[in-house]
Nucleic acid binder design. Sequence first.
RNA 1: GGAGAGGUGGCUGAGCGGUCGAAAGCGGCGGUCUUGAAAACCGUUGAGGGUUUAUCCCCUCCCAGGGUUCGAAUCCCUGCUUCUCCGCCA
Length: 422
Amino acid sequence: MLDPRLFRADLEFVTEQLNRRSFNFDSESYSELEAKRKAIQVKTQELQNERNSRSKAIGQAKARGEDVQPLLDQVQYLGDQLKATEAELSDIQSIMTALMEGIPNILDETVPVGKNEESNVEISRWGDKPEFAFEPKDHVDLGSNKGMSFELGAKIASARFVVLNGMLARLQRAIIQLMLDTHVSEHGYNETYVPFLVNADSLRGTGQLPKFEADLFKVNNDPTLYLIPTAEVPVTNIVRDVIIDAKDLPLKFVCHSPCFRSEAGAYGRDVRGMIRQHQFEKVEIVQIVKPDESRKAHEELTGHAEIILQKLKLPYRKVLLCAGDTGFSSAKTYDLEVWLPGQQAYREISSCSNFKDFQARRLQARWRNPETGKPELVHTLNGSGLAAGRTLIAVMENYQDADGNIQIPEALLPYMGGVTIL
RNA sequence: GGAGAGGUGGCUGAGCGGUCGAAAGCGGCGGUCUUGAAAACCGUUGAGGGUUUAUCCCCUCCCAGGGUUCGAAUCCCUGCUUCUCCGCCA
């Protein structure tokens, strides 16, 4: 959520900024609402003040043993009037909250203009694309005789689920292990285990609700719970309603979890293979930092995700998302895109975002600034480090040979129990 | 799933329906004392919002949501949650 004070102070600036990401903000009807809110709030508070002081007077008169009946008669009319204005105020407040919760974050000034992913800016490339003396297969073909079964996934659950058997399942586990170990031992993250079902408050805190409910899976027999679309939700919500000691910042969490997405808006896309599933594994890294450190933390965190790709010697590129492609809650996002020989394309494998105080305001996640002595909002960041399912297919496709075997990358050997080739 | 006891400020913990945003202690901050520190003593110390140049002033918040009342931290209802015991269970 954006700072309501910003709207009052400089509505034009806000409108302009939101236009950058093609969000059409109707500042005129906002102003009307805001004026109405102010008037009703002032009126309500005046009435409340009157009630309070009169009630106090009644108490004092009673204490002196006076007859309070005349005073009671005077105050009779207040009740209904107050109840009515309070209801009016609460109505307009919930209208405004709903409005504010639907407004996306203001973009960082370094975010390039553009409507969609075609305007994203490539920042760097790493690694050499493998050259094959044969036509490289995609992971679906490579996996068909190695325990990857979409048929079983569909039988057991539905389309967009997969079953991994034997060494492929182990390979995915090895990938997850490598990521966790690297982030914990080399990057100083704190390993966390969290609920995979979360309540609406948590989803509102990180920005998935109220706007993106269609992307979530809900729990049938408990309508208060949702399956997590990413560990970002439970992990970032650790600091909801918390005032953090300055000396404890930055907080750095790493968390492996399954992720569940209904992919409501993507029915026709990536129907083949493991690219886009209803359930996938991911290792998520999250940082909670002081506001003036988030810029640096964002670069750092993105670098932490890159290290994994480098350890696996997977060619990738780093892309700065343009205005139109940057997510709702994010101020700035880098995507890491891994090279997939089976598709002859770079595909997203990590998304690293700086949310600045957007999530923190919804979460009421604050720190005590020693300079002011006051609680102030923190900045939150997160990134996939990495999506494990997509890493698995990247390994399969980049490490294939002419016979359809898969070499195990060196970095994963310690986790593979002596197996070097699948 | 059943029975019982709780949820109050950074923490511990008081609080006959009226002057309670809330005693006391701890912690924090400022000061006195000291070469310095500790101890002791004095003072100060919640959050959000409205109005305002600023101060003043005002409103809201004692788990959450309803209700009773002129007036609710205090009474009633519902929910959530923590703890203890029983049952079930990986």
